[in-house]
């Protein structure tokens, strides 16, 4: 992986550089927001690890500038817990993931790998996570090379969840997706679809949790 780390804390960046280089990745360090921004205009990376509090230009502005010029490089935002309200903003302006400081170095490396795999799958319209693959074009999901034999509605629901990872989807929102206007939506049928889909996804890194009374949240279990 080619990684850009934008972090002005020397202690933290040294540890991360050592970790990623030890794993055999190419990692560059920028300590200044504006310089990182101009670097990102010219060089391309597989993933950007972006701190929020940076000198001369904050991380959100760097991220906003990237997304504004159509740069879809996966970005993992580093934030402090005191910036907890900023965290949601980070995801809303196009961060792919975030980690709260201080964090486990093993986890940040796993998340970077997951982001890169997911993005490389997107290029070929395939969602890849570990041994799980979902081909959006062919509308087929497979686990370890074996077709999961998803039905039409299950594919639609899976597509919905994969595009809303980590977000609550209510039963009504799921029903809206799988029923057209002239079909009478039945929440029972939604539940049945969910049960079948979950059974088929058993053993895959995709986990769909039910929050009773609220809806469903799909998340990726780190492989």
């Amino acid at each position: 992986m080619r990684i850009l780390l934008v972090e002005d804390s020397r202690d933290l960046s040294e540890g991360l550089l050592e970790r990623f280089r030890g794993e055999g990745h190419a990692i560059d360090l920028e300590t200044d927001g504006a310089e990182a921004e101009s670097l990102l205009r010219h060089a391309s990376f597989d993933v950007v690890i972006l701190d929020i509090n940076l000198p001369s230009m904050n991380g959100y502005d760097v991220l906003r500038a990237m997304r504004a010029r159509g740069d879809r490089t996966p970005v993992l935002v580093l934030t402090a817990r005191s910036e907890i309200d900023d965290r949601i903003v980070g995801l809303d302006i196009g961060a792919d993931d975030y980690m709260v400081k201080p964090f486990d170095f093993r986890e940040i490396s796993a998340r970077c790998r997951a982001l890169v795999r997911r993005r490389s799958g997107e290029a070929s319209n395939v969602f890849v996570q570990g041994t799980f693959q979902f081909d959006r074009g062919a509308r087929r999901a497979s686990l370890g090379g074996i077709d999961l034999e998803l039905r039409h509605r299950e594919v639609q629901v899976l597509e919905l969840f994969l595009s809303h990872l980590g977000r609550v989807l209510t039963k009504d929102e799921v029903a809206d997706r799988i029923y057209s206007f002239d079909e009478a939506p039945s929440l029972n049928a939604v539940e049945q679809t969910m049960t079948r889909l979950r059974k088929k996804l058993d053993g895959s890194p995709i986990a769909i949790r039910t929050i009773r009374g609220l809806g469903y949240i799909a998340s990726i279990r780190d492989a």
């Binding site: 986990a207 949790r209 929050i211 009773r212 009374g213 998340s219």
Partner: peptide
Amino acid sequence: VRDDAAGGIDFAVEM
């Protein structure tokens, strides 16, 4: 849910 790694807990919400 994001931070609950194990995922064995049964959550419910009543509004």
